[in-house]
Design a protein around this nucleic acid. Structure first.
Lengths: 343, 343
DNA sequence: CTGAAAGCGCTTACAG
DNA sequence: CTGAAAGCGCTTACAG
């Protein structure tokens, strides 16, 4: 696609079969150009990947600029990732442009327009945090030379279509469950995030694998999906506590969900961990601040942020990544919310 | 200072008494220019406020770009402000470039260089969050046409030298203390942030005013300053609990400090609020997540973020602000950590 | 080290 | 609606 020599107005004009002033008019959005001519010029511009002198220059002289799109507003979680990215950015010559988009808003945005504007502003790359991403979207950016990385993608990458950074969710889910099993719990519930979220599904399967290796049958009434919110955790807790045989331990797929569990346990006068053991997931500073402090599977969120930024910068330099999907290790941090099952 | 017509190389050359190629060389950092000539050209560039075509253009065509410098890493606090700023930014055509600087790092940075780089990147304005700011620093930016706003300045603005947004800290401190007084507490301790932080001092004076209007003498052994951290709160709590006559209530100048109070209270087997009442400050989501949930003076952090961004954009359009310092109202939110004094 | 001259890439004003 | 011509602002190559 890309011609070797740097394209200037004259190059584009030659390809489109018009004069340079006409190309200039198209670029500047003048209206004294025939529609058919405009289209011909436009496709020549696209084909040659034309950049104005200002754009060429800002790409060369200015610091790299990477956009960060936060698709989730779990304060502690996003803040940790942002923290890692900003730390890394402070060392290199990168500016980080942050924007937040609710999943709904993200779906409504026209990615071609967005990528176009980013190209015009001389952006180097874009990092999505916990978003659903399609190949078409990624293509809109990469076709314009904007590198893309996704942190903790909500959907699984359609065979290497985009590069992503995640954590070892399956292993983390397994470790959390094994910890509870080692404390003699057998009636263990799992409270997941959205059923469609890959990371939540992987945690569920880690949970199932741990149960299975102990020969314990998974009970469907102990398994709930919902959202990564307090409310979702509270609701699930109310449900399982009203079962004829309630669980003695709960593995919540995020710390925020675990917060809802703690809330309802308190309402019901259940002591954690004496009456109910609880493991969370994420290991944000939040886990240190609850009462009791939360045993949780820590994700290396700051490291994930750094890795994503590093990846975007590599890609933008035309380097290959070692792997399109990178999983960083989770670690079970035992605090005060889990205890031996009382016999 | 600024000449009326837009300055081009020829204008600068004329003022400096050299030819345009020489000015071009200076701008591009070539080394075949005599030092004395370079200086003469440099000051002509500064005086005329010369911008390259790329800079002139990006200022006109691209979206406004505002830098946000977070000087404090209290997760929940910064996240709320960031949230407000990003919300507002999503509506207008502004990109927000976030960077984080510890106070130490901030002091070491050369502001002239920084402002210079920002000008070259076509930045519109800069917002500092909870930083110490000097007039010299602000001047470095505003002289280059970069608007400055400070959120919750750590020092008080030297008579209108910079525009800032804060909360009604004095009124908030007074409200917190009056709430405790209304619950019949008289032995009320105050745990502040850094002694140099304006906002903390204002909260202290609100506390003193409330005591005074009830005719209660302030006790110096009940008043501590420190930092806006958990550790600072824990340490202060240990100290006052070992007094011959410990307080029955504590007003902590931030929710994070209050967290440290809760921690030590738990260690000592003191029940909050039965044995000890506690009021925090900030009203971040954190206050909802502690056990017991924290009575706290809420700052309108998101609104403060929005106001700062609005202010920067106004200033950059050459508009005047209604006031150089703007205080948004705090609100006491009563939750579960305060109770009537047991007689 | 400096600048007259030539050149580059884009834009503007205007004739057709 | 289109493009030859003139112009603008910056840069480069090179003579002194």
């Amino acid at each position: 696609m890309k011609s070797s020599a740097k394209p200037v107005l004259a190059t584009v004009a030659a390809l489109a079969g018009v004069s340079t002033p006409t190309v200039s008019k198209v670029i500047n959005g003048r209206d004294d150009v025939a529609e058919s001519t405009r289209l011909r010029v436009q496709s020549a511009l696209d084909e040659l990947g034309y950049r104005s002198p200002a754009q060429r220059r800002s790409r060369l002289t200015g610091p790299a600029m990477v956009d960060l799109v936060i698709g989730v507003h779990d304060g502690a979680y996003s803040m940790e990732i942002l923290h890692g990215i900003l730390d890394y950015a402070a060392n290199g010559e990168v500016d980080v442009v942050v924007s937040s988009h609710t999943p709904n808003k993200l779906a409504r945005v026209d990615h071609e327009d967005w990528a176009q504007r980013m190209q015009e502003s001389g952006r180097t790359g874009i990092i999505f945090v916990t978003s659903e991403v399609t190949s078409a979207q990624v293509l809109a950016f990469s076709r314009r030379g904007i590198a893309v990385m996704v942190i903790d993608p909500l959907n699984s990458p359609p065979s290497g279509d985009f590069a992503s950074v995640g954590a070892t969710n399956w292993a983390g889910g397994k470790a959390a469950t094994e910890h509870l099993l080692a404390l003699d719990h057998e009636r263990i519930a799992f409270f997941g995030g959205p059923a469609a979220a890959e990371c939540s599904v992987a945690r569920l399967h880690g949970y199932l694998a741990a149960l299975m290796s102990r020969g314990i049958a998974a009970r469907s009434d102990y398994i709930t999906d919902g959202a990564f919110t307090r409310e979702s955790g509270a609701e699930a807790t109310r449900r399982v506590l009203s079962l004829p045989e309630p669980p003695t331990a709960i593995f919540a797929a995020s710390d925020t969900i675990a917060l809802g569990v703690l809330e309802v346990a308190r309402e019901r006068g259940l002591r954690v961990p004496d009456d109910l053991s609880l493991v969370g997931f994420d290991g944000t500073p939040l886990a240190e601040q609850t009462l009791p402090r939360l045993t949780s599977v820590a994700q290396p969120l700051q490291e994930m942020g750094r890795a994503a930024l590093r990846g975007v910068l590599r890609l933008s330099h035309g380097e290959q990544l070692d792997a399109t999907h990178m999983e960083l290790a989770t670690e079970l941090v035992v605090r005060d919310s889990t205890a031996q099952l009382r016999s």
